[in-house]
Computed example of a mutant assay.
Amino acid sequence: MTLEVTVRLLDPDYLMMLLLADRSVFCRLCMTTGHMDRAAKKLVNQAHFHSWEANRGGSKKIPKKLSQVEIVPSDILNRNDAFIWFLHRNGIESPSWFPPDWPHGQLI
């Protein structure tokens, strides 16, 4: 399993986390808005999580698409909260170096 974390230098609220099994997405956290929930056919304008359990369709195989979403709890307010929530949601211990020194940028 590999954990991939994406942030945007000029957007301190942006965070996407993927848990990958080989090259397949096991689950994804999107702290972004404006994402289409294909199963419900509606736009999700809140931070959300694509879980393996909700998207596997009764199969033990990793799904090809993560079309169903669940809304992230409202007490998840920043990247640090989201990072810990994602790890705990997937049964992963918090690393000893937490919290990370999130990269940031500035306009020149």
Rank of each mutant, 00 (worst) to 15 (best):
D13V: 09
V7L: 08
S59R: 11
L3Q: 09
I108T: 04
P12F: 10
F98A: 01
L107C: 12
Q68D: 12
C30E: 15
V69A: 15
M16V: 13
N78H: 06
V7Y: 06
P63E: 12
K42C: 10
L77M: 07
I71V: 14
L20Q: 08
H88R: 15
L107N: 13
A21E: 15
L43Q: 14
L18H: 10
M17Q: 02
P100D: 02
W102V: 07
K41M: 09
F83N: 02
F86E: 08
M1G: 10
P63N: 11
H48V: 05
T6M: 08
S67P: 03
W97T: 06
F26D: 01
G34D: 13
G58D: 12
A39Q: 10
L9Y: 13
A47C: 13
P73M: 00
W85F: 07
M17P: 03
G57K: 07
D75Q: 02
K65N: 13
P12L: 13
H48M: 05
D11I: 04
C27L: 12
T32E: 14
P100M: 05
L77A: 07
A82T: 02
V69Y: 03
P99G: 00
M1T: 08
G91F: 01
K60D: 15
T33G: 14
A47R: 10
L107H: 14
A54R: 13
D101H: 02
S74C: 04
S96I: 11
N55H: 14
W97N: 09
P95S: 06
K61R: 13
V69M: 10
I84G: 00
W97A: 05
I62N: 06
M31H: 00
V7G: 01
L9M: 07
W52S: 00
L19E: 03
R56K: 15
V7F: 08
D37S: 01
N55R: 06
R28Q: 14
G57R: 09
K41F: 09
H35F: 07
I71N: 03
W85E: 02
D22R: 12
L87Y: 10
R23W: 03
G91W: 01
M1L: 14
G91L: 01
C30Y: 07
V25I: 15
E53I: 13
L107T: 14
T2M: 10
E93N: 08
L18Y: 10
D13L: 13
A54M: 03
A40T: 05
W97I: 01
E93G: 03
S94T: 11
N90W: 04
F98E: 00
L77V: 06
A21F: 12
E70A: 11
F98Q: 03
T6G: 02
L43H: 08
I84S: 04
L20C: 14
A47P: 14
K65G: 04
L43T: 13
D13H: 12
F26Q: 01
K41H: 13
M16F: 00
S96D: 12
